[in-house]
C-alpha cells in the first residue's frame, strides 16, 4: 500500500520538492552573502543605530529596501504553501479515486479501509509537513538579516510575519492537508472540494490572528510617560488637536492597542483637544515638538500600550503548532470514522 501510495503521489511530490530545491539553491546562494553584507554594513556604520539620523540607520533602511522583494516574495510563498498543499495534495487524495472509480478496485483488495486511509494520510501528510518545514527553514535562515533590518515595520509577533516564521507553517500544512482530504471525502468532487478547502482554510487563517492568537496569553498592558525614546508619532493639527502614539523599547512585539489615556486612565480618544493657552504657548509654531509633548505630559496624558511581547514568540509558535496539529488530528479521526460508516 505504501508502494501504491508513493506511485500515485510520486509526480506531485517530485514536482513540489524540485521546486523547493530550486528555491533552496537560490536562497542558499544569496543567503550567506546577505548575512555577511549585513554584518559588514553594521560594523562599518558603527554608532547608535537607534537614532533616526545615524548612518547606521540609513544603512539598515537601505538594506531592508534592497531586499524587500525577496522578503515579501518568500513571505507570500510561506503564506500560500499550506493552502496549495491542501488544495492539490489534500482535496484530490480521495476524490480522484472516486472520480476514476479506482476506489472500487483498491477497496476490494485484501486490505481494510482503515489501513488504506492510514497509509495515504501518513505518507502524504508527512510529505506536506516536510515540504512546509523545509520551505520555512530555508526562508527563515535567508531572511534573518532582512528581518532584523525591517524589524520596525515588520514586527515578528505581528499577524503577517508570525505565520511565516518559526515552526507554525508545519502545523498549517498538516491542517490544510487534512482539511482537503475531509472536504474531498464529503463533497466527492475534486474542483468543488478544492474551492471549499481554500475558502475554509483562508477563513481559519484570518480568524486565527483576530480571535485566537491575541488571547493565547493575557496581553501585557503598559502605560508610558512620553519620552523622546518611546514617542513613535506625533501629529499636531492647526485646529488644536494632537495625536500621539508610542513604541516599545524592544522591537518585534505585536501591539494590539496604542492609545492615549488621560490622568484618570480613561481613553482620551484619537485626537486630544489642547487648551488654547497650550496651543498658543508650548505647542505654537515657534516651539519644538519636545516642548509641546512635555506640556501634554504635564496635563497628565500618558500612552497605554496593550501588546504581546516578542518574548512570547516561541511559546506562541508551539501553542499554535499544537492547535493546528490538533485540528489536523481531529479531521483525520473524522475521516476514519467516515470511511467506516458512510462510504461511496
Amino acid at each position: 500500500m505504501i508502494r501504491l501510495t508513493w506511485r500515485q503521489f510520486r509526480g506531485a511530490a517530485l514536482l513540489t520538492f524540485a521546486g523547493l530545491a530550486l528555491l533552496g539553491i537560490a536562497l542558499g546562494l544569496t543567503g550567506a552573502g546577505l548575512a555577511d553584507d549585513y554584518a559588514d554594513g553594521l560594523a562599518a556604520a558603527g554608532g547608535n543605530c537607534n537614532s533616526p539620523f545615524s548612518s547606521c540607520n540609513d544603512f539598515i533602511q537601505n538594506f531592508a529596501q534592497d531586499n524587500q522583494y525577496g522578503f515579501l516574495g518568500t513571505m507570500l510563498l510561506l503564506l500560500l504553501l499550506p493552502a496549495l498543499i491542501g488544495l492539490f495534495w489534500g482535496a484530490p487524495l480521495i476524490t480522484r479515486e472516486l472520480e476514476s472509480r479506482t476506489l472500487w478496485l483498491i477497496w476490494n483488495q485484501s486490505i481494510t479501509r482503515k489501513r488504506w486511509l492510514t497509509v495515504k494520510l501518513v505518507v502524504v501528510g508527512l510529505a506536506s509537513m516536510l515540504a512546509a518545514g523545509a520551505a520555512a527553514a530555508i526562508v527563515n535562515w535567508w531572511a534573518t538579516p532582512v528581518d532584523k533590518a525591517s524589524a520596525l515595520d515588520w514586527p515578528r509577533m505581528a499577524p503577517l510575519l508570525f505565520p511565516t516564521r518559526g515552526i507554525v507553517v508545519i502545523g498549517y500544512a498538516a491542517f490544510a492537508f487534512a482539511l482537503g482530504v475531509t472536504i474531498g471525502m464529503l463533497v466527492k468532487k475534486t474542483l468543488p472540494a478544492m474551492a471549499i478547502t481554500l475558502l475554509i482554510f483562508a477563513a481559519v487563517q484570518v480568524a486565527m490572528p483576530i480571535l485566537v492568537r491575541p488571547n493565547l496569553a493575557t496581553p501585557v498592558t503598559e502605560t508610558l510617560t512620553y519620552t523622546s525614546d518611546n514617542l513613535d508619532d506625533v501629529s499636531l493639527s492647526g485646529d488644536g488637536t494632537i495625536h500621539l502614539s508610542a513604541k516599545l523599547p524592544e522591537t518585534g512585539s505585536w501591539i494590539l492597542s496604542n492609545q492615549t489615556v488621560d490622568s484618570a486612565g480613561n481613553p482620551a480618544g484619537e485626537f486630544i483637544t489642547l487648551p488654547a493657552d497650550i496651543m498658543a504657548g508650548p505647542c505654537s509654531r515657534e516651539k519644538t515638538m519636545e516642548e509641546c509633548v512635555a506640556a501634554v505630559s504635564a496635563l497628565g496624558y500618558k500612552q497605554e500600550l496593550v501588546y504581546q511581547p516578542i518574548g512570547r514568540f516561541w511559546p506562541f509558535q508551539w501553542a499554535e503548532l499544537g492547535i493546528y496539529l490538533g485540528l489536523a488530528a481531529g479531521l483525520s479521526g473524522f475521516c476514519f470514522w467516515w470511511v467506516r460508516k458512510r462510504i461511496v
Partner: peptide, 26 residues
C-alpha cells in the same frame, strides 16, 4: 473479489504495476 462496473484500473500505472499491487495486497 469484485470487478466493478467499467472495470476501473489506475490509468497511470502499468500492467505490471497492477500485478505488483495485487501481489502485495492479497
Amino acid at each position: 473479489g469484485f470487478v466493478a462496473q467499467d472495470a476501473p484500473v489506475y490509468s497511470g500505472l502499468s500492467v505490471r504495476d497492477h500485478l505488483d499491487l495485487g501481489r502485495h495486497l492479497n
